[in-house]
Design a protein around this nucleic acid. Structure first.
Lengths: 236, 236
DNA sequence: TTGCTCCCGTGACAGAAGTCATAGCTGCTG
DNA sequence: CAGCAGCTATGACTTCTGTCACGGGAGCAA
């Protein structure tokens, strides 16, 4: 008889892409082999360089994967919400975690040990293929970050970020979009590979150009089209 | 009875990490399902955005994976030699190639269609796990590139490149290393995400600082230690 | 030899990026 | 309310990066 907690975890597991082809029995195996852990907002889940213990699945909250520099700067690699798996890769190649993971908000994660997960993959090639597919997306995102860092300016990356945020989290009203900026300027800076001052300046400039309107972390994009057009202009 | 060509291919396949756990029979399957293609130096193997046809294995020569910008700049993501597989990922996630591939020197590649390769992975979970391991390395390299682009200067990245080249391709003589620079300044620039002029200038400066000695593409590093020490100094 | 092409090295410059310091705002807590 | 912590905005400045333009050398072919 599953506990309440296990039943709840099960529902999450079924929504995780890499597990989507398993049978009830296999889910039972998973639920009985997972550990659930809670993290407070800001808490570190694992640090860059730590030996890889296993695979995590986000059950609730958001997790930030990032690198940090000696000088204290950070570069965000991805932000993952419920249903996403994290650290799929080091589980397989045996190396250490290449980046750190941190809970953005209070979060609950499910954890599988390397052994259990590898065993599952050997028994169920489908799972391995799913993992490959998920990792494909991850790799594409990384390549995209490299492209932006290598070829574009801070202004361009900031606009691209705002456009992305607008499309995902914004409230649409014709060609206009309203949204609340997720995190402070330092956080936005970490996401586009720069420092907080440049985010501040560029936001001001975009506002003075009439492309956006910012007020106390509320952002309005009067015309998404016009903003996107700027992407071409600033060297994409 | 295998043809000569098939026999030769077989030898290569056995040295490919992702195939290292297969039986003779399975190798026979592979050799009978592969296509061999030759590319001249500089020839494009596939372009960014092309639909993914299948998986390649480098038999001879070197292959450069890179992104290009609208402005004509390039950013190298990796350079792979004999025994390396290329484009393992888009084979699985069904998307297009995220970057272009080009033969650096005259090269021979082996090609497997998506279908054949996926079938192989389903039959042999070991292969899928190997692929995951290989991709793990790839992902680590990409994260490393992001880190360098985001946190360090051109000078730093150039030194890091020289140190890497020295360790891999150089001739060692105590703490001194001699090597021939692979490619012209534009190519070096593409590998560290900048332009040829900055490579030229920084090489000159390193020379005037006595850290390196360049003469007609021959590079000498009098002291690898001293050069590596500069990595800390220039903000690593 | 002449001419051509490709590449290297450099100076001059413009713009982008990053650092530092300062002033002001917001919201919380005692 | 006073005081504090954290964040934002902005000016001044330095350094880094990238572009453009030019001269010159190496190699090749006619």
């Amino acid at each position: 008889m599953p506990t309440e907690q296990e039943a709840a975890s099960l529902a999450v597991l079924k929504s995780v892409p890499i597990f989507s082809s398993l049978t009830e029995q296999e889910f039972a195996f998973l639920t009985s082999h997972l550990l659930q852990r809670k993290y407070a907002a800001g808490e570190l889940i694992f640090g860059e360089g730590d030996p890889c213990a296993g695979l995590y699945v986000v059950r609730s909250g958001n997790v930030r994967i990032f690198k940090s520099s000696a000088g204290g700067r950070e570069q965000v690699l991805s932000i993952d919400g419920p249903g996403s798996s994290i650290a799929e890769l080091p589980v397989f190649d045996g190396g250490n975690y290449p980046a750190s993971a941190q809970a953005v908000s209070d979060s609950t994660l499910l954890f599988f040990s390397r052994q259990d997960f590898q065993a599952l993959c050997l028994q169920h090639p489908q799972v391995a293929l799913r993992v490959l597919r998920v990792i494909g997306g991850r790799l594409r995102r990384l390549v995209g970050i490299i492209e932006e860092l290598s070829f574009t300016t801070v202004r361009h990356r900031l606009i691209a970020l705002l456009v992305r945020l607008g499309k995902v989290e914004g409230t649409r009203n014709g060609d206009a979009i309203t949204l609340t900026l997720p995190g402070n300027n330092s956080e936005l800076a970490a996401q586009i590979g720069t420092v907080r001052e440049l985010v501040s300046r560029n936001l001001s400039r975009l506002q003075s150009e009439g492309l956006i309107q910012v007020d106390n972390r509320k952002l309005e994009i009067p015309s998404l089209k016009r903003l996107e057009a700027e992407l071409q202009a600033s060297g994409g």
